[in-house]
Amino acid sequence: MGFKLLSKLLVYLTASIMAIASPLAFSVDSSGEYPTVSEIPVGEVRLYQIADGVWSHIATQSFDGAVYPSNGLIVRDGDELLLIDTAWGAKNTAALLAEIEKQIGLPVTRAVSTHFHDDRVGGVDVLRAAGVATYASPSTRRLAEVEGNEIPTHSLEGLSSSGDAVRFGPVELFYPGAAHSTDNLIVYVPSASVLYGGCAIYELSRTSAGNVADADLAEWPTSIERIQQHYPEAQFVIPGHGLPGGLDLLKHTTNVVKAHTNRSVVE
């Protein structure tokens, strides 16, 4: 069995187990497998329904001669939608809004960016022009300005110390501490036991640490421990890039980060 097929099978099995364990909360999309990078042309966006009122959005972007996937989250909030992270750029984010209108038909009224990198804030200006209120932590807003990236308009308070959590509509926002970046936030959907790890969490097929220019490698494993301790009931975990899975993604990420750190020390 090929690795790609095995990865998709694991996603399907995880979703099936969740649907059985929580039949009222989960209505997993039966329309197909989780979209992969090879299936999404740059400039297009796919939506994948995880649970009743919960979707991931998947886009792709060219970077350094390669094409990478990027995940975000959409959560229903009454007759409105909360968006977590842009679709990595203005063109993708405009396509995301169009796809949401086509498939869901509810307005996106608020959006949260989970850290300051372009795959999370690139497209904020498109959201703002569409009347979406954009939010991020003060740290993310400051770092985005320093980096020359787009800056969300509103500040999220109460997320300055490791372990801080605040309720934001249908989700809980959690600051686990520094990891992929010093400002990275985690998003949890309690009604569906869905954990969105953003770039602080890796997919299972990833074996290298990737972009760690703004990471705190020493603190990252401790931050992941905080996530595990705060959300032990999480059933569906979405990484910032690639295929979702279960809580095993947290341990896998820790292993990859520690291996990278150990290699760096040896070198």
Rank of each mutant, 00 (worst) to 15 (best):
T14W: 04
N92Q: 14
V42G: 10
A234I: 06
G169C: 04
A192L: 06
S264I: 15
L249D: 00
L13S: 07
S205L: 12
L97V: 04
P232K: 10
G89I: 01
L9M: 06
P170I: 15
P244C: 03
N211I: 12
G43R: 14
V146Y: 14
P232I: 14
Y135K: 01
M18A: 06
A95K: 08
V189G: 01
H180N: 01
T253H: 00
V187M: 04
K8R: 09
H252C: 01
L185F: 04
E225N: 04
P107K: 15
L10C: 12
V257P: 00
S155M: 14
V112R: 03
A90D: 09
D216E: 10
K258L: 13
Y68V: 12
P107N: 15
S181C: 01
S30G: 10
G89K: 04
Y135D: 01
E150F: 05
V187E: 01
A21S: 07
C199Y: 03
G148Q: 15
S155T: 13
S27M: 15
D183L: 01
D77R: 04
S223W: 02
A51M: 14
S31I: 05
A25Q: 09
L9Q: 09
A213G: 10
S27V: 07
K91E: 14
A87C: 00
L204P: 12
V67H: 15
A209F: 10
F116P: 02
A25T: 08
G198C: 04
I238R: 01
S193N: 08
L217E: 06
R167A: 06
P170L: 07
E267Q: 13
I40V: 11
Y188T: 01
I58F: 14
S264K: 12
G148N: 11
A209T: 11
F116N: 05
A51P: 03
T109F: 08
G163W: 09
D214N: 08
P35W: 11
L249Q: 02
N255M: 06
Q61E: 07
D85E: 09
G210T: 05
S161V: 14
A90Y: 07
V187N: 03
G105V: 14
A209M: 11
I74Y: 03
D118S: 07
L81A: 15
V189W: 00
Q235C: 05
L106G: 11
D125C: 03
Q103E: 13
E233K: 12
L156N: 02
A90R: 14
V108H: 02
V112C: 03
G158L: 09
Y12P: 04
T153C: 09
L73E: 02
S139C: 08
Q49K: 12
E99T: 06
G105F: 15
A51T: 08
A144P: 04
L83E: 04
E219P: 04
L5S: 07
L143C: 07
K4A: 04
K8H: 14
L249R: 01
R128Q: 09
E203M: 00
V256W: 03
G65P: 08
Y48E: 09
P138T: 06
P221K: 15
S205I: 11
A215W: 04
S181N: 01
G32A: 10
A15N: 07
T93L: 00
L6E: 07
L243I: 14
Y196Q: 02
G2T: 09
L97P: 03
E147F: 08
V45H: 02
D85L: 00
G89V: 02
D85C: 00
E157I: 12
D119M: 01
T153V: 11
A215V: 06
A165Q: 12
I104P: 00
V257C: 09
F26N: 05
T109N: 15
H180L: 01
L5D: 11
A19N: 14
L249E: 01
H57Y: 04
I186L: 07
A51D: 14
Q49L: 12
